[in-house]
Design a protein around this nucleic acid. Structure first.
Ligand SMILES: [Mn+2]
Ligand SMILES: [Mn+2]
Ligand SMILES: [Zn+2]
Ligand SMILES: [Zn+2]
Lengths: 140, 140
DNA sequence: TTGAAAATGAAATTCAGTTTCAATTAGTTT
DNA sequence: AAACTAATTGAAACTGAATTTCATTTTCAA
């Protein structure tokens, strides 16, 4: 099972491995998209009627704390969460018509960003590059 | 007075030029920072006790519609608004300690962004580049 | 001056997200 | 295996920013 590192995180913090957490984390790993709490909640409900909304929220927060998930708040959208893929940073193109999310990385941009920071004597700890527009399908 | 274009916008839409709108727009132009609705509301209150919260909200929305202001939602912060300076786009460095906001532009990044979009067959309509970290004063 | 349409402010409402709390559960200790 | 204790749970209450409602007021053109 892939969620071993989550169990490790729980142990290290003296927290408990519960049925609900197992279900939520398992689904989160399987979905593998930018999913909202509601998405996950409904998926979890299909597995087990007794899983509550707050538990889904709390579990996602734990995943973020564990460094296994990241929170994304795109313009005008509800908060979404995504799995951290082998610790690699990436940014997003977001279609304002269909909502499609395309990921990209660009080393040259990241290099230029360093320059910008240096120029302003600024120490970067994180960044967010979101490009909004129309995806290939919605262009015309 | 600089808010002539706002009055023009109102006329063109069949809307009315009111005392409240004059006060709010006037203050917004003078403040010239990334100000929250609350900032503006309090400033307006000092000028005229009868100006309400909703009117400030509504006026800022109108300014955005008129293309004279832009809405900014930095991570973990309340919504802020800023004056559009001669139609020029810019991005931001945000200090996560003191909240300072530094503006930057970088043509080379914007060019590379075009390339990224082309590669994904994506038509850009807008973008948002936010760099979080520590400003020169908060670095140590 | 008048009249119709727009604007106002206070209060109510919305909505995502968080907190509360009594009851339940996990995991360790006897 | 039972007892113990701290963490967890779900439902409901709450929060805070933003929006809407609506009776009253204001604008502005005729
Ligand atoms: Mn992503
Ligand atoms: Mn700015
Ligand atoms: Zn699309
Ligand atoms: Zn600072």
């Amino acid at each position: 099972m892939m969620n071993k590192s989550f169990r490790d995180y729980l142990r290290s913090k003296g927290l408990k491995s519960t049925h609900q957490r197992e279900v939520v984390v398992d689904l989160f790993l399987r979905l593998d998209t930018h999913c909202s709490v509601e998405d996950l909640y409904h998926a979890a409900q299909r597995k087990d009627k007794r899983i509550g909304y707050s538990t889904v929220y709390r579990t996602l927060k734990l995943l973020v704390e564990a460094g296994l998930a990241e929170e994304r708040r795109f313009s005008g959208e509800v908060t979404r969460f995504e799995l951290v893929h082998r610790g690699k940073h990436h940014d997003h193109l977001i279609c304002i018509k269909c909502g499609r999310i395309i990921e990209f990385t660009n080393d040259r941009i990241e290099k230029l960003q360093e320059k910008v920071a240096k120029k302003h004597n600024f120490k970067i700890s994180d960044h967010k590059y979101e490009i909004y527009g129309y995806c290939s399908r919605c262009k015309k």
